[in-house]
């Protein structure tokens, strides 16, 4: 029983394996090698005439001179070959197909760039530009100059105008005059005016030009003497000038001092 059971088991196993694996078939996948052949070149053959006529004079061999009479002419057949047609036919190759084959691999490289550019010693010819003589050039614009400098003005002299303008002359400080000088001055005005000194109020002593005084006015508020000068005053010596007022009629009297 045991053997039978084992045999059955083997059979079962064998069947199971047979039916479990799919059948495997060998398939030849290689391509058929194609034959290398060549085509017969087309060859043209000429149809040469089998016979060509060759004319031969049938003359007597006696060496007699021929007369003007017509001689009898016979045509003799002779085989002729035109070799040119043969050569043409043999040499003409109308088409010859190349057979595909494995190409030999060639390694290609990019040539390196030159490290230094070569300088041509001579100028390249044929690239010279030619100017067109007929081309009108653009003319430069006209430039103008404006002088910004201020010219020196003309200068005039007019001393007479300056002298004629009223000029204020301050009086000297009478309090600071030395007493002898004061006494001399008062004596001079008494002599010049003939007035009693007790009747005079001295308004001031002014240093004015000894000549050329064309006008004078006393400014009581400031105590100054306003004078106007003429051309004669230019360069004139400065002389003390005393101005006084009479007490009785309040009129003004004056005189140059120190012989002015």
């Amino acid at each position: 029983m045991g053997r039978l059971k084992g045999a059955v088991s083997d059979v079962a196993e064998t069947l199971r394996r047979v039916f479990s694996d799919p059948p495997c078939h060998h398939l030849d996948t290689a391509l058929d090698a194609f034959g290398i052949g060549s085509l017969e070149p087309f060859e043209g053959r000429s149809l040469a005439p089998e016979a060509l006529c060759h004319a031969v004079l049938a003359s007597a061999d006696l060496g007699l001179s021929a007369g003007l009479g017509s001689e009898p002419t016979a045509f003799q057949a002779r085989v002729q070959v035109d070799e040119a047609f043969v050569q043409w036919a043999a040499g003409a190759r109308i088409c010859e197909m190349e057979v595909f084959g494995a190409a030999s691999g060639v390694r290609s490289e990019i040539p390196p760039l030159p490290r230094r550019a070569q300088v041509r010693s001579s100028p390249p010819e044929g690239f010279r530009g030619r100017s067109r003589g007929g081309m009108a050039s653009i003319s430069a614009p006209r430039g103008f100059r404006a002088d910004p400098t201020l010219a020196d003005p003309r200068v005039h002299r007019d001393l007479e105008l300056a002298l004629g303008l009223p000029m204020a002359v301050p009086g000297e400080d009478l309090q600071k005059l030395p007493r002898p000088i004061w006494m001399r001055y008062t004596l001079q005005i008494v002599k010049a005016t003939g007035e009693n000194i007790r009747n005079l109020d001295v308004l001031g002593i002014y240093r004015i030009p000894s000549k050329g005084v064309t006008g004078l006015r006393h400014d009581a508020r400031s105590g100054r003497l306003v004078i106007q000068l003429g051309p004669a005053a230019a360069g004139a010596r400065r002389t003390p000038f005393m101005l006084a007022r009479r007490k009785d009629d309040r009129t003004i009297v004056s005189c140059y001092l120190e012989g002015g």
Partner: peptide, 10 residues
Amino acid sequence: SGIPLDFRYT
């Protein structure tokens, strides 16, 4: 003394 000695003007 303030007396004019010269006067110029432009």
